[in-house]
Design a protein around this nucleic acid. Structure first.
Lengths: 210, 210
DNA sequence: TGTACATCAGTGAACGCGCGTTCACTGATGTAC
DNA sequence: TGTACATCAGTGAACGCGCGTTCACTGATGTAC
């Protein structure tokens, strides 16, 4: 689905030494294209160039190829997700309440930015050097882990393995988010009820460790 | 990623009135191509035709267009998933044990058939007439729902709303499956431990309804 | 202050490719007489 | 039994398109003298 028709006013050229300005503008444009078009296959270099008000070859001054650009966009979105979630928790102290709000915020982000969420967590696996660790996703996971450790320390979770508890929680909120994102036509129960039910149930299970 | 080089021996033509034979062969070929190539974008009509030992235009005798073919393949895979899960439960009577084994079997199917799983649950939303209800997915969900109702009837689950419990369970197992499928490079804990932990925790939460 | 020159951010045109789909056709199979 | 004909499963070649990427270039900006 090309969107070549919506040509943006051509960008005026950067001064000498300010060539890197375009890099950010291309990233902005790529994010926009990615969101508006459906999926990373529809994010063509030409569409990105168009959205940035630039010709396609200029992109190659800042990104080696398309994959490189897609990864850079992903890195951005990973950081945005993490920042969004942490921001939602800023005022909450109790670790168990934090855990719950963390889950809610995560799902909310996914529903508010479905295309980003798709690219981050529902796309195809990337080559070796695109490990999640490098993508700031690890930062988000670390935050979750610390939250879980605080819950364990407070005695609110009786399990001892913070890693598996964290991964489990991630799987749970991701499950809700990605089902809602990928099957919007399904007759889901009200979203908030669903999220709360799943988070409550899981939290109860964690509190009553067997 | 074309795979035009692996040309299959050309199929001999069907007798009169047996033209529908090709339909199944195309579906088989399309399934194979979908699994071997990565994702539905890589499943080109030409590759499918090649795999079926036929020329591209013949596909149009049996499927209106590419979308039509992809949907037909999906329908198949939905049925396979459902059949696989039900088969794994054949010998289990206790509804709570059934629920657990259902979850395990679901995840196992996803991990064993990652590309199908991607197409079924991680792809893009389809047009209106491709509702999950029509795709046999509803059949699988109905089976889950009946299982949950049996658990409620047996008093093993204290919740009363079988729908939200079922959707929640689906989200949980889907979360595990799709994370493992989409991020194979992440340092996951051992898969079986993870599945059991998540299922146990959730089941415990369902048993101890607040 | 003026001029020749190096830099480099970006352009314009083109490359080769694989794609979904169409269209006029072929030729084996079966039927009517 | 033999022949003319209708059917229809499948072919071969071509269409127009958008894609990622390359390459020789341009022309404004800044620098050296």
């Amino acid at each position: 689905v090309g969107r070549r028709n919506s040509v943006v006013a051509r960008r005026s050229r950067a001064r000498r030494g300010e060539g890197d300005l375009l890099r950010d503008e291309i990233l902005d444009a790529a994010s926009r294209v990615l969101i508006e078009s459906g999926g990373e296959h529809a994010m063509s270099m030409r569409a990105v160039a168009d959205a940035a008000g630039v010709t396609p070859p200029s992109i190659y001054m800042h990104f080696a190829d398309k994959i490189d650009l897609v990864y850079a966009v992903c890195e951005r979105h990973f950081c945005e997700l993490d920042a969004y979630v942490e921001d939602a928790l800023a005022d909450i102290d109790d670790p168990m309440l934090r855990l719950r709000e963390r889950g809610r915020a995560y799902v909310r982000f996914g529903l508010d930015h479905p295309e980003q969420y798709r690219v981050l967590f529902m796309g195809h696996q990337a080559p070796e050097d695109y490990t999640p660790e490098k993508m700031g996703q690890m930062a988000g996971f670390q935050h979750l882990r610390e939250n879980v450790e605080a819950c364990i320390a407070a005695g609110a979770i009786t399990a001892t393995d913070a890693t598996i508890v964290s991964v489990g929680l991630w799987a749970v909120v991701h499950g809700v988010t990605s089902l809602l994102v990928s099957k919007p036509g399904f007759p889901w129960p009200p979203v908030d009820e669903l999220i709360d039910h799943v988070l409550d149930t899981h939290a109860r299970g964690l509190a009553a460790e067997g």
